[in-house]
């Protein structure tokens, strides 16, 4: 079985933002939202030890993904190959997963009213094609692959010291790793530490999930929704099996 991961080679990245735009193009991500990002930090330090650092980020496809736990409908789930995906038909746009995500990797599409995020371009990957951000990366700073394969490039880079963005407070098993030989990664970790997951409370479940559903029921289609919901739920489950 594969387990997909990505390594960002900070030594090679020149912060050109091509990955961001390629992703926007491939998934029609509406401005100003994004599925992946490059956050440029101000050059800092004391001469001559100055660092110009950019934080290249995307969904970390965490092993212990808080978003999966937070999702009340099962729309967000983790595939067996490690990729965390959102089933748009099950998503009710409640946004609980957004609050749970430590990396700010999710947004609600304002038109579709569904949550969206990086899915490692799994449709492409299943066709043997690299994710769009990797394919366009001019600096070859993004390396995608299978960490269950010890001979894969990602496995080797992780063995060579690529590290995930975790802290003493938050470690939910992220699968994005950062390779860095110039002490740039600590700058990213200091500026963008993983956020403690903000998990759903009964109060939030009521305001964001149950109350909207209640109004739907008033609208007269609750039963229909429930039937469709259940069917799709099962379909959704079976789809992830390889």
């Amino acid at each position: 079985m594969s387990k997909y991961a990505m390594v960002i080679d900070m030594d090679r990245c020149i912060a050109c933002h091509a990955c961001e735009v390629a992703c926007r193009s491939h998934y029609d991500v509406p401005v100003p939202y994004y599925r992946n990002w490059v956050h440029d930090l101000r050059p800092e330090g004391v001469y001559p030890d100055i660092k110009k650092v950019s934080y290249v980020g995307l969904c970390n496809h965490c092993d212990d993904a808080p978003c999966v736990k937070a999702c009340p409908t099962g729309a967000t789930y983790k595939r067996k190959d490690g990729v965390v995906v959102v089933d748009k038909d099950l998503c009710i746009g409640c946004g609980l997963c957004i609050e749970a995500c430590p990396y700010g990797a999710r947004y609600i599409d304002p038109v579709k009213e569904k949550v969206d995020k990086c899915d490692f371009c799994i449709d492409r990957v299943e066709q043997g094609v690299e994710p769009a951000c990797v394919a366009t990366c001019i600096a070859s700073a993004r390396i995608f692959g299978d960490i269950d394969d010890p001979n894969s490039k990602v496995s080797q880079l992780i063995a060579n010291g690529a590290q995930p963005n975790v802290s003493s407070k938050v470690n939910v098993g992220p699968n994005i790793y950062y390779l860095d030989s110039h002490n740039h990664f600590p700058v990213v970790q200091a500026a963008f530490p993983p956020k403690v997951p903000n998990m759903p409370t009964p109060q939030k479940m009521w305001t964001k999930v149950l109350r909207p559903l209640f109004w739907l029921a008033i609208g007269g289609s609750f039963l229909g929704q429930l039937a469709a919901f259940s069917t799709q739920l099962f379909k959704g489950e079976s789809d992830i099996k390889e």
Binding site: C16, H17, A18, E20, V21, A22, R24, S25, A135, T136, C137, I138
Partner: peptide
Amino acid sequence: NRGKICARGNAGV
């Protein structure tokens, strides 16, 4: 460019 393009090239759309 060997299969790669920059942000601006991607944004031609």
